[in-house]
C-alpha cells in the first residue's frame, strides 16, 4: 500500500551559507506544501534575504540541498537554472525595480522572453487587467505612482504562472492601509495563479494574514 504524500513545493535540507566576510549561517530545514503560504520571520540581519536568494536560485549555498517544485535547483546547469527561475519562481522586492527604459507591457514581455516563453500579449492583458493596470500598459515606470509600481512588479512576478511567489519585505516602508492592500494583493494573486507565497518580513502586521511561519535561527 502506497502512502499518500504530497511533494512539498519548497524543501530545504541542511542548507548552510558562508558570507565572503567569513560569517556563516546554517538554516533550519524547511518543507512547504503547495498552497501553504509561509512567512520567513526574523530580525534585520538574521539572513532572511539570504535564505530567499538561496531558495530562488540566486545564491548557491555552501552546503545542503534546495528543491523547488520538485527540482533540485543547484544540480541544474547555470542556464537551465536561470530559465527555471524565470518560469517557476516569481520574485517581488521592497522596491518595484522595473526596468526604467521599458514600458510596463515591455517589462512583462521581457519576463516572458527571458523565461523562454513566447510573448503572449493576451496573457499580459489578462494580468494587467487583474491588477487594474490596463491603462498603464504603455507607460514608463517613471509615470506610475508607488502603488501602481508595486502592482506592476506583482504582475511581472505572476506573468509566467510560477510555482512559488517569493516576496522580500514587501511592506517594509508602507503604512497600515497600504500594508493591508499589498498583502491582500499578494494573497489574491497567489490564489489566482495557484502559487505558494513565501514572504520574508520582520513586519508584525503581516503575521495576522499568513498563519504558517518559519523563524530564522530556530531549528524547526
Amino acid at each position: 500500500m502506497h502512502e499518500n504524500t504530497i511533494t512539498p513545493v519548497v524543501r530545504l535540507n541542511d542548507v548552510a551559507y558562508q558570507y565572503p566576510q567569513g560569517e556563516s549561517l546554517r538554516f533550519a530545514d524547511l518543507e512547504v506544501p503547495p498552497g501553504q503560504h509561509t512567512l520567513i520571520l526574523g530580525d534585520s540581519g538574521s539572513g532572511k534575504t539570504t535564505l530567499l536568494h538561496i531558495l530562488s536560485g540566486l545564491l548557491k549555498p555552501g552546503d545542503g540541498t534546495v528543491q523547488v517544485d520538485g527540482q533540485q535547483l543547484y544540480g541544474l546547469p547555470a542556464r537551465k537554472l536561470d530559465a527555471f527561475r524565470g518560469q517557476r519562481i516569481g520574485l517581488i522586492f521592497q522596491e518595484a525595480h522595473l526596468v526604467k527604459s521599458l514600458t510596463i507591457k515591455e517589462n512583462l514581455q521581457i519576463a516572458q522572453g527571458f523565461a523562454g516563453a513566447k510573448i503572449n500579449n493576451d496573457r499580459i492583458n489578462e494580468v494587467l487587467s487583474l491588477l487594474n493596470l490596463v491603462d498603464k500598459a504603455n507607460n514608463y515606470p517613471s509615470k506610475l505612482s508607488r502603488g501602481q509600481l508595486q502592482r506592476a512588479a506583482i504582475a511581472r512576478a505572476v506573468i509566467n504562472r510560477p510555482a512559488i511567489l517569493v516576496a522580500d519585505e514587501p511592506t517594509a516602508s508602507l503604512d497600515d492601509r497600504n500594508t493591508s492592500s499589498v498583502l491582500e494583493l499578494l494573497l489574491t494573486q497567489a490564489e489566482e495563479h495557484h502559487a505558494t507565497l513565501i514572504v520574508a518580513t520582520h513586519d508584525k502586521r503581516v503575521k495576522t494574514r499568513i498563519a504558517h511561519a518559519y523563524q530564522m535561527g530556530i531549528k524547526q
Binding site: S56, R79, D82, R85, L91, H97, L98, A115
Partner: peptide, 14 residues
C-alpha cells in the same frame, strides 16, 4: 538593478 532584475526574470549571464 535593471541587470540584476533581468537575471531574476531568467536572463542568463550571456
Amino acid at each position: 538593478y535593471d541587470l540584476a532584475i533581468m537575471r531574476t526574470l531568467g536572463a542568463s549571464q550571456g
